[in-house]
Amino acid sequence: MAESHGVAKGGEAKGTASAHTEAEGGHGFPPFQKETFPSQIASLVIAFVALYVIVSRVALPKVGAVIDARQKSIDGDLAEAQRLKDESEAAIKAYESELAAARSRAQAIGAETREKLAASSDAERKALEESLAAKLAAAETSIATTRTTAMSNVRGIAADAASAIVKQLTGKAPAAKTVEAAVDASLKGTA
């Protein structure tokens, strides 16, 4: 680095030296030749103005528009992605709440059905039990009636038989009242 610097300075020194020696000949160190200045300034003005016009009117607006469009499309895509993400999240939320609602509805229906079935089976059993109880009571009543009838029949037969037996034995028919009282007493004793 230091080496190249030294040489550069040497070159410059040589340049200025030659500028001094050749100044009379109209040559000199080229960057310091004043007679070239107007030409260089004129061409620089023309070239730089042309460049400035091209750059400011055409080139930069074009490149800037491309960069802006890219930025806009990236932003748009990101916004679209965010919107879709939000949408899918909302859909998931809706699906979950619907699922929960459906589950609770199903449970409610199940419970209702179970209760209804239990109630109707209860009612049926009650009705059955009632009808059985009624039949039983009817049967018991008929048995009791039959028995009473039978017993009263037995009393008549026994009184007749007793009266017949007494007549046979004594030859004389006893008083009906006496016979009935005796039969009753004996029925009571046996009963």
Binding site: S39, Q40, S43, I54
Partner: peptide, 24 residues
């Protein structure tokens, strides 16, 4: 003063052309 088209002018125009072509 003579206004001449020199080596320098040529390279200035070359730079303008390179930049313009590149940008456009």
């Amino acid at each position: 003063q003579e206004i001449a088209f020199t080596t320098s002018s040529a390279y200035m125009l070359l730079a303008v052309v390179i930049i313009s072509v590149m940008m456009l």
